[in-house]
Design a protein around this nucleic acid. Structure first.
Lengths: 135, 135
DNA sequence: GGTACGATCACGGAGCGTTATCGTTT
DNA sequence: AAAACGATAACGCTCCGTGATCGTAC
């Protein structure tokens, strides 16, 4: 195993998060450090960094921290043991939810890009119906 | 002119926003109703609805409400008068900022989609480097 | 032994959701 | 006159940012 440990600063930098955010994710049960120094410094391992990167990557899914925690916990267990049918369903459900949110985000993103170009156009350069009412 | 007016409920529904959000946007100076009834009900016109739709469309830019207000104000003035060089710069700056944010969002969205598929894969089905450290 | 770096409160703020209470519209 | 709709506080919540004050690492 790789026993190398890191302090919160390096971990946060590598994960692209602030110290505050890393600590917050610990508070809400998303990612806990693998240990502490004598003096109380948080100690992280590579797996913790990967976890933080995963959490950060999943943020655009819009899942709540509780849902994210469940999702990660289920996925973790799925790698070591066989999930019960119930848990498999819950995992699939969360993944479906995440995908759905991402689809919506993608649409909103495209709409936003269009809206920005409308604002940037010299008046009447682009079609009027660029900003539509939602379905 | 089109003198038709609407109450907040219909406007909110058409714009895909909650009543709370529409009122909030008024509080922060984004979109104000064109008038009020005797009893105090907010009255909106078509232009107000369009404004709300635009605000909603621009939300994924991540611009703050103040920035959005500035952007819309500048754009409004640009349609009726010639902007000063300073204002033209500020407008261009805000648009550039919006586009930059959208680019970042697009990347994060793609990364999130990849991360979800990683979680969905039956372990070792997808490349390991799916979740990368940020630049 | 100094200078980075980290820990723990604690307050703040954006962007709304959510009652609760009361008035308006039609 | 009742059913639907709206107004105004005011508190709550999430996801952190921002000090302040103090201890730790090396």
């Amino acid at each position: 195993m790789d026993g190398t440990t890191y302090h919160i600063g390096e971990v946060a930098t590598r994960a692209g998060l602030s110290l505050r955010t890393v600590r917050y994710y610990e508070d809400v049960g998303l990612v806990a450090p693998s240990g502490r120094t004598e003096g109380g410094f948080r100690l992280y391992r590579e797996t913790d960094v990967k976890r933080l990167l995963l959490v950060r990557a999943l943020k655009p899914t819009g899942l709540s921290v509780e849902e994210l925690a469940q999702l990660l916990a289920l996925h973790d267990r799925a790698t070591s043991e066989e999930l019960s049918a119930v848990d498999q369903d819950r995992l699939a459900g969360l993944l479906a939810q995440a995908r759905q949110r991402l689809r919506i985000e993608r649409e909103r993103l495209i709409a936003a890009e269009l809206a920005v170009e409308v604002l940037a156009a010299p008046a009447g350069q682009l079609p009027e119906a660029a900003v539509r009412e939602p379905a």
